[in-house]
């Protein structure tokens, strides 16, 4: 008898249930900003949360929906950052920068993705990391273009000078992009991705070219990851290879582990938790990697489905006990 193959991330991807979580999250972030008495620091924090939400949701289109784990999304985020910064420097046109900063990473994703999907999920994770390291080294070493370790100063965008205006611009951009993800996930293509996640062999068997579908998801993730990077460049002002470093690939992974891969809004919630947590941790220690490493380790050890998974487990546990109690009652009666 064959053992049932259980893919980790796979299973029902829930979204409706968690929409409220997102709505609450967005309102908690957005409402205070409307009464903009807050210092710019918090507005900027909220802006970076928004950008990370886009980064996380795009990453999860791949991981949560197909079960392919990428350890190298920084290649696309980072190349988005750099392409956008370089375009802004030479043309100072934001639309052009955003366009270039998302199309270039998508092209990169086509090339790298072609090789990454050639073999199993195991290879996929490995190869994405390797290719990201290639991009990192390239950006690090190509001083004449990227400034190497010194980085680049990105020119300001005059009409987005006010942090609050910039915040709303980012908010709009992210909401539209996330909405596109929502549409994709609920399209026939999205359903196909879910079936790949649940049972790759069977999906292949019914004639779906799995490799191609995953590649398309990878390219979309690259495109929107790049877009997140493209807007991040003018937002942060000074960029450096740190934004292409593997720790940047780690960011969406952490967010998904925190928020749960199984919910459309999981990474969004994860992004909020991650940014806020990081902000707090770095107040006390420089070793935020260590802290996050330990947190991840514990979460992966005890709950394969992230923090949301823990909450959900508690929920089902309670439900189960209630039904058990009811059954007992029925039996007694």
């Amino acid at each position: 008898m064959k053992k049932a193959i259980h893919s980790p991330a796979c299973g029902e991807v829930k979204d409706s249930l968690y929409s409220w979580g997102f709505v609450i999250a967005v309102t908690t972030v957005a409402i205070p900003l409307i009464f903009s008495q807050f210092p710019p620091y918090y507005i900027k924090l909220a802006s970076s949360i928004m950008i990370m939400i886009l980064y996380g949701v795009s990453f999860n289109l791949l991981y949560g929906y197909t079960g392919y784990l990428s350890f190298g999304q920084a290649a696309y985020f980072g190349s988005g950052v750099y392409v956008s910064a370089l375009i802004l420097r030479s043309t100072s046109s934001l639309p052009l920068a955003l366009l270039g900063g998302s199309i270039a990473p998508a092209l990169l994703a086509i090339v790298f993705g072609y090789f990454c999907v050639k073999r199993s999920k195991l290879y996929f994770a490995m190869l994405t990391l390797a290719f990201a390291q290639l991009i990192y080294t390239l950006i690090f070493k190509w001083r004449s273009l990227t400034g190497g370790d010194d980085g680049i100063v990105v020119p300001r965008i005059p009409y987005l000078h006010n942090p609050l205006t910039f915040y709303f611009f980012i908010l709009a951009l992210v909401l539209v992009s996330v909405f596109i993800h929502w549409v994709i996930v609920h399209s026939p293509f999205g359903h196909m991705l879910k079936s790949i996640c649940q049972n790759q062999e069977r999906t292949e068997f019914i004639g779906v070219p799995v490799e191609k579908q995953v590649l398309v998801a990878f390219i979309i993730a690259g495109f929107f990851g790049g877009l997140a990077g493209a807007i991040y460049a003018p937002f942060i002002g000074v960029i450096s290879p740190k934004l292409v470093h593997w720790t940047m690939s780690l960011t969406p992974v952490i967010m998904v582990v925190f928020g749960g891969a199984k919910h459309f809004w999981g990474p969004a919630i994860g992004a909020i938790v991650y940014i806020v947590l990081k902000d707090i941790i770095t107040l006390y220690t420089d070793n935020w990697l260590l802290v996050f490493g330990l947190m991840l380790l514990i979460i992966v050890l005890i709950s394969p489905r992230g923090v949301m998974g823990v909450l959900e487990n508690i929920g089902t546990y309670i439900k189960k006990n209630i039904t058990k109690a009811n059954l007992m009652k029925e039996r007694i009666n």
Partner: peptide, 16 residues
Amino acid sequence: RDVLFQYLFTYTWILI
């Protein structure tokens, strides 16, 4: 567990 979790798991060791 699934290989992806094992992956994620050893990945956390790098950080630590």
